[in-house]
């Protein structure tokens, strides 16, 4: 029983590639949950981080809260919300948001805080107002760190969306849960490999996004620093 041959057999079975339980459908569900969780968390965390970082108000509180939230066991949050609110997409997305907000929030806050005060002075000296300083200077300079936080969050979200299957929703986790229940090692392995592949693709996507979104000047500077 070689692990590799098991995997090859599982992936080469044509039945695996069609229908609602096929790999494309499950992959689609998984990506859908992950994207939903990540986009919601970004929509919450980036504005809050920008405000606390820009004004300095409540910065200590939010970063402490975020670090505190990192200690929350995700499966505990997920199962508790399922018990209270019932099975469905809501508890899954809530748990993913709880997981993804802290790294994005902390990085956005630190990114804006960490902008060189001389740059900020220069922007003010050029006559920029508070909001212009935020969007024309602080946000672009903080972008690499924000993307890094989002990448950390995205990888964790992709990995954790697996758990959605435990509360009766779809996604690649189904293969892992059902494989475990049926003692079907090849299914379990296949599901795990797919999740790993998706996580690696996510990492690569963020490398591309970084190239796309970070201002060329900042990229050159980072390269020089290295």
């Amino acid at each position: 029983m070689n692990v590799l041959t098991l995997l090859v057999e599982w992936f080469s079975d044509p039945a695996q590639w069609t229908g609602t339980a096929g790999i494309p459908a499950r992959l689609g569900e998984h990506v859908y949950y992950s994207l939903l969780g990540l986009l919601l968390s970004t929509a919450i965390a980036v504005p809050v981080g920008l405000i606390t970082g820009h004004t300095g108000v409540g910065g200590f509180l939010t970063t402490s809260l975020a670090n505190f939230a990192r200690a929350l066991p995700t499966i505990g949050v997920l199962f508790l919300i399922v018990l209270l609110a019932g099975i469905g997409l809501v508890p899954v997305v809530c748990a993913l948001v709880a997981l993804a907000v802290p790294p994005i929030l902390v990085n956005t806050h630190e990114g804006v805080r960490g902008v060189d005060p001389r740059l900020r002075d220069a922007a003010l000296g050029m006559g920029m107002r508070g909001r212009e300083v935020l969007f024309k200077l602080e946000l672009p300079v903080a972008t690499p760190l924000i993307l890094l936080g989002m990448r950390t969050a995205a990888v964790q979200v992709v990995a954790t969306a697996t758990i959605a299957a435990y509360v009766g929703v779809g996604g690649l986790g189904r293969y892992i849960v059902d494989g475990q229940a049926r003692q079907d090692l090849s299914m379990l392995l296949g599901g795990s490999v797919l999740v790993v592949a998706l996580a690696v693709v996510t990492t690569l996507l963020f490398a591309g996004l970084r190239r796309l979104l970070v201002a060329p000047g900042l990229r050159a500077e980072a390269a020089a620093a290295r």
Partner: peptide
């Protein structure tokens, strides 16, 4: 503390080579 927030946060100077762009 800044280095603490880790790998994730804080080191904006590019001193944390944290970009596995070529896996």
């Amino acid at each position: 503390e800044a280095a603490a927030a880790g790998r994730d946060a804080a080191v904006g100077s590019g001193s944390t080579p944290d970009h596995p762009e070529s896996p």
